[in-house]
């Protein structure tokens, strides 16, 4: 009886310690949705995968700006005036356009305010987009494939002999 109690007690303590360690390890907690539902069912698989459109075609600022940018509504519309204009999602797009309202996309990859991430330097370093963003071309809905934790950034920087000076990324 005593032995059983002892074992149970030890087990509880062990579990608690492990849980606390895990909790500590993942602090600060990241409870954001890795694959949020978007207002429009935009498929990267269709655009980038099946149709083979290059990332930089839409995210054109990635080459020259810290922000990669997303295509403006006008750009979406320009294509879809001719391409499958009758698909239900395209109609939704057109409705937004008519109301002159931007689509409230949900951000999947977001970095805190104190991090400086220049897309252009990473593109110039010949880093494939998939290195951080995963195989977008196979995703119907975008799923975040990286933890975006500092350790993750640091690993890659160390691997590629990029600068690990704090001020390279922190602002």
């Amino acid at each position: 009886m005593n032995k059983v109690r002892l074992i149970i007690g030890l087990a509880i303590v062990t579990v608690a310690i492990v849980a606390a360690s895990v909790l500590l390890y993942i602090l600060p907690l990241d409870v954001r949705d890795h694959s949020p539902v978007q207002p429009l069912r935009f498929s990267h698989k269709l655009h980038a995968g099946d149709n083979g459109i290059h990332c930089l075609f839409c995210h054109s600022y990635a080459l020259k700006s810290p922000a990669a940018g997303i295509p403006s509504m006008e750009e979406c519309r320009a294509c879809h005036l001719f391409i499958s204009p009758n698909a239900p999602e395209i109609k939704k797009l057109m409705k937004y356009w008519e109301k002159r309202e931007p689509i409230p996309w949900v951000r999947v990859y977001s970095l805190p305010d104190f991090v400086y991430f220049p897309h252009m330097m990473h593109v110039r370093a010949k880093l494939p987009c998939a290195a951080c963003h995963g195989e977008v071309a196979t995703m119907e809905r975008i799923t975040r494939s990286a933890s975006l934790k500092m350790g993750w950034c640091l690993n890659c920087h160390q691997k590629h002999k990029a600068s690990i000076d704090c001020w390279t990324c922190h602002k």
Binding site: P28, D30, S72, E75
Partner: peptide
């Protein structure tokens, strides 16, 4: 001003209407 890396909600990503 963002308090910390700890945020419970995903932000929005608002596109330009016109480039």
């Amino acid at each position: 001003a963002v308090l910390d890396g700890c945020r419970s909600k995903n932000e929005q990503l608002i596109p330009y209407l016109i480039p």
